[in-house]
Design a protein around this nucleic acid. Structure first.
Lengths: 235, 235
DNA sequence: TGAATAGTGTCTTTCAGACAGTATTGG
DNA sequence: CCAATACTGTCTGAAAGACACTATTCA
């Protein structure tokens, strides 16, 4: 095979971390896990992104590893999952040179209420941060994830993946507004969404104390749609 | 320190690869290197992206590693450099489970003509491929880089980084057209570029066998500009 | 009937698309 | 003068912004 000496040099630690988003309580939230409170681990007791070492025996590839970590914490099997980037260097982990492959996932509202792992908890995203101080460079990674999500929401249909299987147009618009943190025009929003050929009406209405709203669902196996313009570009 | 046994498990091989683009001979080209022709290396003699193992003693972080590899092959020190993503899995390298952190760089035309390393050579990008068969999964990475470049060119000022220090608007437009592989409207192009507050005129003209053109330069330390609409969205 | 929210229509603005027309050089 | 390319202006159409208006439910 290959000469052993060629490969016999120190390798970085390799991890995968996942930023998991959902809309809960009318706000954008992210799932964090608390690190074990033992001195043999760095950042004992601190909150961190769900993630950990790649298992080269068990994980076929990076994405499979991300899916595994997502499922460990949320029981959710196949939400929207996108690679975010990687962060690596000598200083980010006290145990040595390390590199993490970061992903971000969008959970539909109903899935985010399921059985969480004992050490996991949802936190509201405020601005592009979260209240607790995060371990490692996870605050930077979370910030990048929020910015990526916000910027893609400007011109894609990503928020559709944060919705339950059936939803109304006003509910979808509300989700856009929560993520973007600014109001959108109802009329332009409806026109764009219906023109995008992304959703289809189901033969049901959402009842309430007012005029019922048409229910829609995602057209099946639909990749995210890209719009030619952003929404109401601020300034 | 930390318990050794905690960290004493097999780690993936970790590499950094760089997709280096430039406009040469009126075409989009990418720099490739030929792998050594020895049997102790995988893919002997095949063309590959410039890159290699992270040196945890010498590289401060992933980006520094990418800069080093770029400089090794091109002598260029600080072009536009952006992270592209990471690819990792059990099957991509015959030497074992490996993960690469991929970057892409844009070289201005004049820098791309400089002294290359002996094993390096430019290849035209045709569609989203390159003529020779590439080692590892580098064809996939190159394809992702071309797609990312094309899609960002639709709504950003990235091609400005492919230009020499001084250039005319028709030259900039030609660069957009080469990357996008479709013609753009002169009038709309000029309006948008001048409105973007990205470039400024210098007190010189480009002479030719016809009407001279105003020379411009990038406004200093200008981050890429995002436009609210894409160019002439095809269909 | 009124409150509340769903959904539509209409006018304006902005900007790309198309393309004609003018400007300025060398030969 | 002509060829060639730089640059500007004008008309049109598509889609967003603003916002008024209608529709449909429950209480």
């Amino acid at each position: 095979m290959y000469k052993k000496s060629e490969l016999d040099f120190p390798r970085p630690l390799t991890t995968v971390d996942v930023v998991i988003f959902a809309i809960r309580s009318d706000a954008l939230q992210a799932l964090l896990v608390q690190r074990p409170n033992t001195e043999i681990e760095p950042f004992p007791g601190a909150w961190a992104l769900p993630g950990g070492f790649v298992d080269i025996a068990g994980d076929r590839d990076l994405e499979a590893c991300a899916v595994r970590k997502l499922k460990d914490k949320t029981r959710v099997v196949s939400p929207y999952l996108e690679q975010l980037g990687s962060w690596g260097g000598a200083a980010r982990d006290p145990r040595g040179w390390s590199a993490t492959h970061a992903y971000f996932a969008l959970l539909p509202e109903h899935a985010a209420g399921g059985a969480l792992a004992a050490d996991a908890q949802w936190f509201a995203v405020e601005g592009d941060k979260v209240r607790p101080k995060l371990a490692f460079d996870h605050a930077v990674i979370l910030q990048a994830a929020v910015q990526r999500l916000r910027s893609k929401v400007e011109y894609t249909s990503l928020p559709a993946y944060l919705m339950p299987p059936e939803f109304t147009l006003p509910e979808l618009q509300r989700t856009y507004e929560i993520v973007l943190d600014r109001p959108l025009e109802k009329s332009a929003f409806r026109t764009r969404m219906l023109a995008a050929d992304l959703i289809e009406p189901v033969a049901k209405m959402r009842k309430g104390p007012n005029r019922p709203a048409q229910l829609y669902r995602l057209k099946k196996a639909r990749a995210p749609v890209f719009f030619a313009r952003t929404f109401n570009p601020p300034d």
